[in-house]
């Protein structure tokens, strides 16, 4: 290992800051252990690192505060000397060669690029903060909703649907506050099926929900639905019995018209 190589690859600094691989570290230790030049550099690097770590947090904060651009205090001058100084500056600038101006221009360009980058970062930060606020509001709403849904529901509206002829529909008066409702359907007589498939269709025939269930009693099949699934409108409940072969057979179709009410729910009206 020669000194130039060590200097160029900043081995000493990487060693002190724990950035060397184990083998690299062992090789370097075997070299520097009796190399005064490397030891000078290593001791300086170790001491500086230790000093940086020992720097109290308060001082580091002070240093961070100094990162903000400092205000430049220009002493007030009377008009005549100020004029003379300005003239001198112009003269000096006029005499200076172009290198200084080019350097200054480059520095200015670099500064401007930094400003643009900083502005971009600020904008990204603002957007991220806005998204976070929105997310928090949404989360808060969901938590509230979840909390409400976990409360025991003392009065569960029950709607018993019976087979109707033709296109007659029944009106379900559902409380406006979102809650669970129970809908029961008449079974076929005599009962032939052990399982039923219940589907909720929109007025246009689009399937909104479907589930399979067993009879609730000898005469009925019941399902619990959350009222948020059936906002005011017209729907069709389709009840199919599932035979032993697994083939569904239509048992009944119930056309219902859902309206909301502030009062307690009432029985279906025809």
């Amino acid at each position: 290992m020669d000194q130039e190589q060590i200097h160029e690859s900043d081995l000493a600094e990487r060693y002190v800051t724990g950035r060397l691989m184990i083998e690299e570290q062992a090789d370097f230790e075997a070299h520097f252990i009796d190399c005064p030049q490397c030891l000078d550099r290593l001791e300086a690097a170790q001491a500086l690192r230790r000093g940086m770590s020992a720097l109290p947090a308060r001082v580091q904060e002070e240093r961070a505060a100094q990162e903000a651009p400092a205000k430049v205090h220009v002493p007030r001058l009377s008009r005549a000397p100020a004029f003379a100084i300005a003239a001198s500056i112009i003269l000096v600038l006029a005499l200076a060669d172009g290198t200084a101006f080019r350097d200054a221009q480059r520095a200015k360009d670099a500064l401007e690029a930094e400003r643009v980058a900083a502005a971009g970062l600020h904008q990204q930060l603002d957007q991220a903060q806005a998204a976070l606020r929105q997310e928090q509001a949404s989360r808060s709403g969901l938590e509230k909703e979840l909390s409400q849904s976990r409360q025991p529901q003392l009065q569960v509206p029950v709607f018993a649907l019976i087979a109707m002829r033709g296109d007659e529909s029944e009106t379900l008066q559902v409380p406006s506050a979102p809650q669970w409702i129970l809908i029961s359907f008449e079974r076929e007589s005599p009962p032939r099926f052990d399982r039923y498939q219940i589907a909720l269709l929109s007025s246009t025939g689009k399937k909104l929900w479907e589930g399979e269930t067993k009879p609730t009693s000898r005469d009925t099949v019941a399902v619990g639905l959350h009222s948020s699934l059936v906002p005011p409108g017209t729907y069709v409940f389709q009840v199919q019995g599932i035979g032993k072969s697994g083939t569904p057979s239509l048992v009944a179709r119930h056309r219902v018209h859902v309206v909301t009410t502030q009062d307690s729910p009432s029985s279906p009206r025809r």
Binding site: A47, L48, G51, V59, R63, E67
Partner: peptide, 30 residues
């Protein structure tokens, strides 16, 4: 205390914010 004092002085003398930041990041981060 002495090491911290020396570091403080070195940081002051470095003059540019860039050099101070560079040292901090090199020695105190990975």
């Amino acid at each position: 205390f002495e090491e911290a004092h020396c570091v403080r002085q070195v940081l002051e003398e470095l003059g540019t914010k860039r050099d101070r930041d560079l040292l901090r990041r090199f020695y105190l981060s990975s």
